[in-house]
Amino acid sequence: MRLLRYIAGRLVVYFLVVVFGLTVLFFVPRLGPTDPVEAMLAKVASQGAYMDAAQVDALRQSLADTFGLGGSLIDQYGAFIKRILLTGDFGPSLSMYPTPVMELIRNALPWTFGLLLSSTLIAWVLGNFVGLLSGWKPNSASSRTMEGIAICLYPIPYYILALVLSILFSYVWKIFPLTTTIRGAPWSLELVQSVLWNSFLPGISIVIVVFGWWVISVKAQTTALKEEEFVRYARLKGLSDTRILGRYVLPNAILPQITFLALQIGLMFNGSLITEILFDYPGLGLLIYSAVLQGDFNLLMGTISLSIIAVATATMVIDLIYPLIDPRIRHR
């Protein structure tokens, strides 16, 4: 019963957060001095596309629909929120007319999630391992070196690291592809290889930074936990180091990381967007970028609404599973 109440409460907050995010998204374009519809039309016209008056009017109508520019501000706002939350409809893409925006997003999302999820997981496993070992013997030379390396890696933004890696491994030493080209029939071995090969550099740039953080914080946790009574007791009981680390220290060292992850998702998402753009990686970031370049307003509103919903959802999911993992937090 308590669990249900917790989940219900969290879902209400989640819903409010999403509505709040979309509200920001609704009002932000209206803050500026320019009319976004006219600005977009000017942008499309400057691309050199010739359109006759009827087409321009049709486009203006479609843009006005996307913005929900009919009626009073309150009406517009209500219609905007309702349309996104209930139907998930962002209209057709203007630059790839008449493909619906949702379809483009559906094609891009697996790339972004795949990249972020797999690199976070790899970094998590590696970071925990190295962090635990170096926290266990915090003053040894190797663990000091590891911490030094981690401290130098963590503050670097993902996209800077991505840039450095692409300079090193695509320009100077040409072993990895400069831009992403996926080859092979669906579900063939060649396709899998091609995806892995092309994802390597963008992925590793995220892995390295997240790894750095995990080493720093797991090491600090482990060093503190080592002095705890229960660890001393386990050692006096004659348990092996591996068992103490795995069964006693690790679970306690991991827990604080999970809340950190929830806070960090937004930043990681930001970073992965730019990384994708730099590597031409076909995820949400590249989609947003091409929408900006081509003045595709429907696509832009769609991708950005979805970014907000995705980050809010990920944060909520972590919040919901956290009490399941941490036995000390039972839903009060």
């Binding site: 967007l273 900006v292 907000i308």
Partner: peptide, 19 residues
Amino acid sequence: DALLCIPTLPILILMAALF
């Protein structure tokens, strides 16, 4: 909490694209 859930960069990109 709500502001922390909103990814900053996409909003900045949107503003830049509009202006």
